[in-house]
């Protein structure tokens, strides 16, 4: 009984020409497992950010005015531009996955590079905003300066959650950018074919998820009450 798999060595390398892993029977099963695994991981990410949203919800409920005041300190124009940039990167990521479905390696590489450009732009704007907060002494802790003594406590809470939420989001972006870079090299090498490109699809899921987190973060942090 000959079989396409090499003799049962513990380590069995899959490659572009032979993507079917030994523990799977067919590529559809392998793709479905990869997608289900990714979505399970995204469920954990939803609850990861969810825990911080719970803290946000409790304190915004307790100190509505203080949080509105603190939220107005954030630069809305840069926030809006940043959201647009991230939505743009989501578009280019989706196009990269679309290219992968058609097996066009060069197209994948191009749109992955575009996604990285948008991602870098987002992180750049974010870094500027962090510098701006540092400059304005809005980093919670001993160096925190706040005009209205009434809300100096809750304002620090707001900025604590601002930095924890956007910080975790930025870390997820950086991890995403690193993965995109690796994937860019592999795409140029032609590792992704129309028949097998689960890695690109999962990268897309991850990137879109990080974008969805920002879709919630932007209104909750920047738009508490701009009326």
């Amino acid at each position: 009984m000959t079989n396409p798999h090499t003799p049962a060595m513990a380590h069995h390398a899959t490659s572009a020409k032979n993507p079917l892993a030994i523990q799977f029977d067919n590529l559809e099963q392998q793709r479905f497992a990869a997608s289900l695994g990714m979505w399970s991981f995204l469920a954990t990410e939803i609850l990861f950010f969810g825990g911080a949203f719970l803290g946000y919800a409790v304190y915004r409920n307790w100190y509505p005015h203080a949080w509105a005041e603190a939220s107005r300190q954030l630069d809305l124009t840069w926030g809006t531009i940043n959201t647009a940039v991230l939505l743009g990167s989501s578009l280019t990521m989706a196009l990269a996955v679309d290219e992968a479905r058609q097996g066009k390696s060069r197209g994948i590489a191009f749109f992955l590079m575009l996604t990285m450009v948008f991602g870098t732009a987002f992180l750049g704007i974010k870094a500027y905003e962090y510098w701006h907060k540092w400059h304005e002494h809005l980093i919670p802790g001993t160096s925190f300066v706040w005009s209205n003594p009434a809300t100096i406590g809750p304002a620090q809470l707001f900025f604590s959650f601002y930095f924890v939420l956007t910080g975790c989001h930025a870390v997820h972006m950086i991890i995403g950018m690193a993965l995109l870079l690796i994937m860019w090299f592999k795409a140029r090498r032609g590792d992704y074919t129309a028949e097998w490109h689960a890695a690109v699809e999962n990268m897309g899921l991850y990137w879109h998820f990080v974008d969805c987190v920002w879709v919630f973060l932007f209104p909750l942090l920047y738009l508490v009450d701009r009326a």
Partner: peptide, 13 residues
């Protein structure tokens, strides 16, 4: 699986 995460978040909140 995509909606379960949000459902549990809703329970917690």
């Amino acid at each position: 699986f995509a909606t379960a995460g949000f459902l549990w978040l809703a329970i917690m909140l």
